[in-house]
Every structure is written in structure tokens, then in C-alpha cells.
Computed example of a mutant assay.
Amino acid sequence: MEQSLIDLYRAIEDSSAAMLAAASREDWGGVMHHEGTCAVLIEQLRSSAQGHRLAPQLRKEKARIMRRILDNDAQIRILAEPWLASLDPLLQGRPQFVH
């Protein structure tokens, strides 16, 4: 079972990388396709992971995979919404308030 769980994490990572590649090409249809693939894989992971824990070495790989997925997601957001990047200099060093 452990191997199938880590394989699902790897598949999500691969699909995330494919999403980033599509976003880099401004292929938004491709981004949506890979996003759908990720959603299916995540649902499979949720149902498969219930009651199962990964071995310590596989948990390290899972952590690496999760960081990569989050990094890919951040890069996709920058490509999809470039105006967000222009806000960074404005927000650095300023306290953030929620009203």
C-alpha cells in the first residue's frame, strides 16, 4: 500500500509540473486539463490514504513532493495573474490589515 500511496503523490507532482509547463506556454486549456487530472488523483489519494501511514523515508519524499507542488502552484499563479507580482513591492514591510 505504501508504494501505491507514494506513486499517487508522484503522479500529482508530475501533473503539477505539466500544469506549470502549460502555463509557461500560455496554454490555459492544458492547465485546466492537468488541473482536472490533479483533482482526480487527489481524490484517489484521499480514499487510499485513510488509515495508512508512510514509512519515514517515504514521508521525506512526500514532503519534498509537497514543496514542489506548492512551488509549482505559486509559479502558475504568477503566470496566470502577473499583476499579483507587482503588488509584492507595495506589500513588503507594511503591516497587513483585514477589515
Rank of each mutant, 00 (worst) to 15 (best):
L45F: 10
I12H: 02
D88K: 15
R68N: 11
A39V: 11
S86V: 00
T37E: 12
A80E: 07
D88P: 10
R77A: 15
D71E: 01
Y9E: 05
Q75V: 09
A39Q: 04
W83Y: 13
E81V: 14
M32Q: 02
R10N: 07
A63R: 07
S15T: 04
D14E: 10
L84W: 00
A55K: 01
R46G: 12
L20M: 11
M66W: 06
R10W: 03
E26V: 11
E61D: 04
L70S: 05
I65G: 03
A80G: 15
L41A: 02
Q57D: 14
Q75K: 15
D73Y: 03
S15Y: 06
D88L: 14
M32P: 01
A74L: 13
A22N: 00
L84Y: 06
I42H: 08
P89D: 06
N72H: 15
S15F: 05
E35G: 01
L87H: 12
S48W: 06
R10G: 04
A11D: 11
S15E: 02
L54Y: 07
I78H: 03
H34S: 05
I42T: 15
M32F: 04
D73C: 09
T37R: 04
I69K: 04
S16W: 02
D73F: 07
H33Q: 07
P56L: 02
Q50A: 15
M66A: 14
S48G: 09
A18D: 05
H34F: 15
A11Q: 04
P89K: 05
